[in-house]
Nucleic acid binder design. Structure first.
Lengths: 223, 223
DNA sequence: TATTAATAATAGTAATACTATTATTATTTT
DNA sequence: AAAATAATAATAGTATTACTATTATTAATA
């Protein structure tokens, strides 16, 4: 039996499911590369269309705008993250090693998946680090949130919070601690690379550094 | 003697110092209101010009683009924050109450200043919460950072790190903990307000909630 | 008083973020 | 196999954004 890694993303996010066609899948794959290369602000549907030899209008039939496309990509990422957490934790007995595994997952590239969608995992990770906050730091967050499009993030947060509770049932801020860990894992990697004086990094790589910082923080907070 | 609250912002940020004229000051004041009202993405120099009965071209003689304007506003904020930390801490003896004061400063509106610049402090706080990460999460961070335009943030971070060191000389991640606290203070307030399921907020207000979460976190990490 | 500097008014451009229309091709239904 | 439906490509067009340039007018300074 082959396991198919395919996450159903809330269909409010797209106009037409990009997984429903070759073109749609190619679109997301190319978008990840292009956003990684030029950044979300410079990214346009026109440039994406040019890159993949199609037209702007065609892309607009899949996604309402580029914000929705980024949201789609992040939903995929968050869903995958939650799956990874569940999968890699299932055989672990003590909650301490579960939490360690979570930190590890949060500070490494996505592992190879065997589903049909083969995105560039290193690029995807970079996009999450540099662009993810832009999907919720928007003026119309209220209306967007009504469509349940942040459910995968909330689910991931709840999952991590449940393991935090398992480790220390008395701790009252499991969800906030989860989001703080998640966001800090991106931030610290970004700062370590681009604004190192906002961190204490010496010569290690950003991931290893971030993992050490977060692990110590997490266990001290929960002690 | 009257104390004048005026922070010299790195002059790479502007083309012409907005503090050097009435119009310049009005520009920043109006920008803060407009960014607060419509969000940074929707904010344009055209709209700002319309708002204050001047022209786009005039604003462009002060700032290269809207990103620089936001950077200017945040530099002002970070400098003010550092000043506030130093000022409110000077008479405190033990480093524990110093850290508590820092959390308090980070989770409250800016206090009334007696300088000539009277920005809307509540709006400014909201801008920092919702828009600040957009100044460094940009593709050209490398070149921008060369101009030293993030110095006030780094200084604030270093200042807080020094007090962390004072409290616990053995702790190795003072700078990362500072930025984590600063960024989390914005994030958690934002989440508590707009995406509450990413937090554990019940019925308190977002600030009080965030302060409690951060204070507990900080002292546990440093114990 | 002359010079310089700042602003207002106006115009213009390339790029962005879309929408609309039609022809062509592929897929599905009858 | 023909007819109907759906997806795409090609093309065109619009309002807005993010600027730059020019000139006339007003204010400040030498």
């Amino acid at each position: 039996m082959e396991f198919k890694l395919s996450f159903k993303v809330n269909d409010h996010i797209y106009l037409r499911d990009p997984e429903s066609s070759e073109l749609g899948m190619l679109m997301v794959k190319n978008a990840i590369e292009l956003i990684h290369n030029i950044g979300f602000e410079q990214f346009t549907f026109k440039k994406l269309a040019l890159e993949m030899n199609t037209t702007e209008a065609t892309i607009y039939r899949y996604f309402e705008n580029k914000h929705r496309m980024l949201l789609y990509i992040l939903n995929w990422y968050w869903s995958y993250m939650e799956y990874l957490v569940i999968y890699r934790i299932q055989n672990l007995k003590d909650s301490k090693s579960k939490l360690k595994t979570i930190i590890e997952i949060l500070t490494n590239d996505l592992p190879e998946s065997n589903g049909k969608l083969e995105y560039n995992r290193a690029y995807l990770t970079q996009i999450v680090i540099a662009e993810s906050s832009k999907v919720y730091l928007v003026k119309d967050i209220k209306e967007i949130n009504k469509e349940e499009v942040f459910k995968p993030y909330k689910d991931l947060c709840a999952k991590i919070a449940s393991i935090i509770k398992e480790y220390n049932p008395k701790y009252k801020y499991g969800h906030s601690l989860s989001t703080t860990i998640i966001e800090a894992s991106h931030q610290q990697q970004y700062f370590a690379k681009h604004l190192p004086r906002l961190t204490d990094i010496k010569n290690k790589n950003e991931r290893e550094y971030t993992a050490l910082f977060l692990e110590e923080l997490l266990f001290k907070v929960l002690s």
